[in-house]
Nucleic acid binder design. Structure first.
Lengths: 127, 127
DNA sequence: TTTGAAAACGATAATCGTTATCGTTTTTGT
DNA sequence: ACAAAAACGATAACGATTATCGTTTTCAAA
């Protein structure tokens, strides 16, 4: 895909620190390279990158986050610190066909997110 | 739980038509009984009912919906018509422990939503 | 290398769902 | 009946995101 310089810089931000930043966080980071960039440009390019499939949006209650890893994986949201972690382990679940037949629908996606307490927060609480 | 008249009417709206309405939809419906009710009152009471555990919020990308069925169940969102359906079939999934050990976390909730095409929309498309 | 159209941009206004404020009204317990 | 607490309506404020618009940059064809 052909990208503008600023769009490239936004990709670079997503690639270099894979912590699922919000638009604001991307804005702050890309300003290190382009101090004059507008927040509108960040939103515009994030939207475009989503449309073309380069990145994905992982909605978390009124505050979108962005992930450059478009492979099939799950996200874990820490309820304590708000951090988001990738989970790549396979999750097989049974009952999907039964769910489909229950309401007579075709399930295209089963979207799973985890919530709980992350390693760091558990370590802190443990002491 | 002790409720005001208007809070009761809001519950009644949720009970009588279990289609996971948005706050706006609740507002429209409760106005049939209380034409003078304010949208603020609807939001206020929906929030309160969530807090006390009488109803649940099922967030769907920037637009909350409300469900008076607080039992453990899943929701199916039709990508075509936007309708939301309840799914009560059990879904067992394996790999949760592996996911926990992968990132060293404690998973408290696994939140699942389905997306796809509902019965009605498939029937329409089929002709 | 000029040129002109398309794409991208910055600034900022607008939008949308939701929440907060505040002065008034209703409910409740005594 | 009465005071305190809860609920209310109107509306302003909020925060995240999107739209607008006039300007600037890019890039390919001439």
């Amino acid at each position: 895909m052909k990208h503008s310089h600023k769009r490239d810089a936004i990709c670079e931000v997503l690639k270099s620190k894979r912590d699922h930043p919000t638009a604001d966080m991307v804005y702050e980071r890309v300003r290190e390279k382009y101090p004059e960039i507008s927040l509108a440009t960040v939103y515009r390019n994030l939207a475009q990158l989503c449309t073309e499939g380069t990145i994905i949006k992982i909605g978390a209650a009124g505050r979108e986050r962005y992930d450059i890893d478009t492979s099939d994986h799950t996200h874990f949201f820490c309820d304590e610190c708000g951090e988001v972690y990738d989970v790549f382990s396979d999750l097989n679940f049974t009952g999907l066909a039964k769910a489909e037949s229950e309401i007579g629908c075709k399930i295209d996606f089963a979207h799973i997110t985890f919530r709980g307490h992350c390693k760091n927060c558990m370590a802190k609480a443990g002491n």
